[in-house]
Computed example of a mutant assay.
Amino acid sequence: MTTDTLADAPHEQKQNPGQLNSVQLNIVTLIDMERATATGSLADAMYMVDNSIGGDGQGTHRLQTVCKQGQVLNWIIRPIDMEKRLDNTWPPMPKINSIVLLDTEHGDEEDVAERKIFTELKIYGAPDRMRDKFTPVYYYWAGTVLSTARPGLYRYRLVVELEQEGTRDKLYLNTEEHPSIRVLGV
C-alpha cells in the first residue's frame, strides 16, 4: 500500500479509543515478610516504586502513579529478602489478592468505588500450578486503565496474601494508608 493509498483510505473508528502504544507502567511493591507476618500489618512493611513520570511517594506505601487513559499497569510484588536458601528453596512469596478502588468522591476512603477505571488482564505467564519451590516466582496483577476513565486521582487498597514460613496458612492484609493512581486524559 502506498502513502497515496493510505491518505485516501476512509477514517476508521479505533476499536479501543484511548488505547495507547506507550510504555507499560510497572508498580513494584516490596514486602518485609518477617515484619508483616509478625505484626499482622503492612504498616512499615511495604515499600512501593514505579516507572511513571511525575508521580510522588517513591519508596513509600503512599505511592502516586501517574498514568494515561488506555495505559497498561503491572503491579509486581515480591519480598525484600530474595536470597536463595542453602536448601535451594526460595523464601515465602507475597501475592496481590485484589486491588480495590476506593470511593474518594463521597468522602469515605474505605468505601469501595462503584465505578470501574481499569480492566484486569488475565494471566499471561505460567499458571501458578507450575510453580516450584526451587524456582522464584514473582506474582503480579495487570490491568489497562479504561479509555473512558475520567482524569483524576484514584486511591486504591491492596489486599495482599502472604505465605507464612513453615505452614500452609495464608495471612491476608490490607493497605492501611492507600497508594493512588493519577489518570491523565489523552
Rank of each mutant, 00 (worst) to 15 (best):
M1C: 02
A7F: 11
A7H: 11
A9F: 05
E12C: 05
K14D: 13
K14I: 09
Q15N: 06
N16Q: 12
G18E: 11
V23Q: 12
I27N: 13
T29M: 10
I31S: 02
D32R: 07
M33D: 12
A36F: 05
T39G: 00
L42P: 03
D44M: 11
M48H: 07
N51V: 13
S52L: 09
G54Q: 10
Q58I: 07
G59R: 07
R62S: 06
R62P: 02
V66L: 12
Q69P: 10
N74H: 05
W75Q: 14
I77Y: 02
D81P: 02
M82G: 00
E83L: 02
K84A: 11
L86Q: 15
P91H: 15
P91R: 15
P92R: 12
M93S: 06
K95P: 01
N97G: 06
S98E: 15
I99E: 15
G107T: 08
D108H: 13
E109D: 14
E110R: 09
E110P: 00
A113R: 01
R115C: 01
K122W: 10
I123M: 08
Y124V: 12
Y138C: 04
Y138E: 10
Y140L: 15
G143I: 00
T144V: 13
S147K: 08
R150L: 06
Y154R: 13
R157A: 13
Q164S: 10
Q164M: 05
L171G: 05
L173K: 11
N174G: 07
R182Q: 02
L184R: 11
